[in-house]
């Protein structure tokens, strides 16, 4: 009997095992089919519909009107869609490219257990666990009230009130906020991978007299490359999603010229600026963004794999 059970098939091949298997996967699979696959299909269908004011329902009829609207808005000088692409690009560069670069330097510092590394690790992770809305509300008052008063009183310099100031000042304040609040998870990931690099490799290089910068660029970076490329690939979609904390700071009232695509989409569907008649338009925009994001993601993945240094440890 015991021998029979040694074969996994005699355990998992029984009808009881199959019933158990189906019972376990049925709810998660239903969830997936409804809220991923179903939502995706419905999103495409909704993008071809329009809102019927009389019945309050979405009906087919406009054809590809919502898609045409996207391209006409993109060309229109009165629309901010083009500016939103630029803003999203800046936020993406700051949060993904600059964010990853700094996170790698920080992770190396922590992995090498340099002075205060334990404390810095905690500090870098702290913003990740604090409520975004609480942090944003405090940060806004910190810059607009404390820094404003401090620079005025001590240096007689008009620091301004970034969040109550000009749109470019508001945007800069949002970008800085996004950058400084986003290190936590990344640093932990990189620290985890860097700590797995064999000490023998590093010690051998140390005997050759390399300094910390050389170790970072020549040894560490190539070895953590797979993790970096994973973050870069996963970060592509962030271009269309990142709100740069704007909804936390301004609710639905962010200046049009500073809005990112993520903020615009959220505000039009879920925020105070949401209107039911905009749903088909937003779905069409979402489909277009997905159609851009998917090939770019796959291309980035392919390109980063091609560039991958041929190292193993």
């Amino acid at each position: 009997m015991k021998k029979m059970y040694k074969s996994k098939n005699l355990i998992t091949g029984t009808w009881k095992a199959k019933v158990f298997y189906v019972c376990v996967i049925i709810l998660p699979m239903l969830q997936f089919l409804t809220f991923y696959f179903g939502v995706l299909v419905n999103s495409v269908l909704l993008s071809f519909k329009e809102y019927d004011m009389k019945t309050g329902e979405y009906v087919f009829g406009g054809g590809a009107y919502n898609y045409r609207l996207f391209f006409s808005e993109l060309k229109s000088p009165s629309s901010n869609l083009g500016q939103m692409f630029v803003n999203s690009g800046i936020v993406w560069l700051a949060s993904t490219m600059l964010g990853i670069t700094l996170a790698l330097f920080f992770a190396f510092y922590i992995t090498k257990k340099m002075a205060g590394s334990g404390f810095f690790k905690l500090m870098l992770f702290l913003p990740t666990i604090v409520s975004t809305i609480a942090m944003a509300l405090i940060y806004r008052r910190f810059t607009d009230r404390l820094l404003y008063s401090f620079f005025n009183d001590v240096f007689h310099y008009d620091f301004g009130k970034p969040f109550a100031g000009k749109p470019n000042e508001q945007f800069t304040a949002c970008v800085i906020y996004t950058l400084i609040m986003g290190f936590g998870t990344q640093v932990l990931m990189y620290t985890g991978v860097m700590s797995r690099i064999p000490t023998s490799v590093v010690e051998y290089a140390t005997l050759d007299g390399i300094n910390a910068f050389q170790e970072f660029f020549i040894i560490t970076l190539p070895l953590v490359y797979p993790t970096i490329s994973t973050f870069l690939v996963a970060g592509v979609g962030g271009f269309f999603i990142n709100q740069a904390g704007m909804y936390d700071f301004f609710g639905s009232k962010a200046e049009q010229s500073i809005q990112t695509l993520g903020y615009f989409m959220y505000n039009k569907t879920a925020g105070d600026g949401a209107v039911l008649s905009d749903y088909p338009k937003m779905s069409a925009f979402g489909v277009i963004f997905t159609l851009i994001a998917v090939p770019v993601t796959l291309l980035a993945r392919w390109g980063l794999e091609k560039l991958s240094p041929n190292v193993e440890y």
């Binding site: 409804t34 809220f35 991923y36 179903g38 939502v39 995706l40 419905n42 999103s43 909704l46 979405y58 690939v233 996963a234 592509v236 979609g237 269309f240 999603i241 989409m265 959220y266 569907t269 879920a270 905009d278 749903y279 088909p280 937003m282 779905s283 925009f285 979402g286 489909v287 963004f289 997905t290 994001a293 998917v294 993601t297 993945r301």
Partner: peptide, 16 residues
Amino acid sequence: VMVVPIVGATASTLEI
């Protein structure tokens, strides 16, 4: 699912 980004599905989720 993790790699392929789906953007702007909120309206569709709300409708469902």
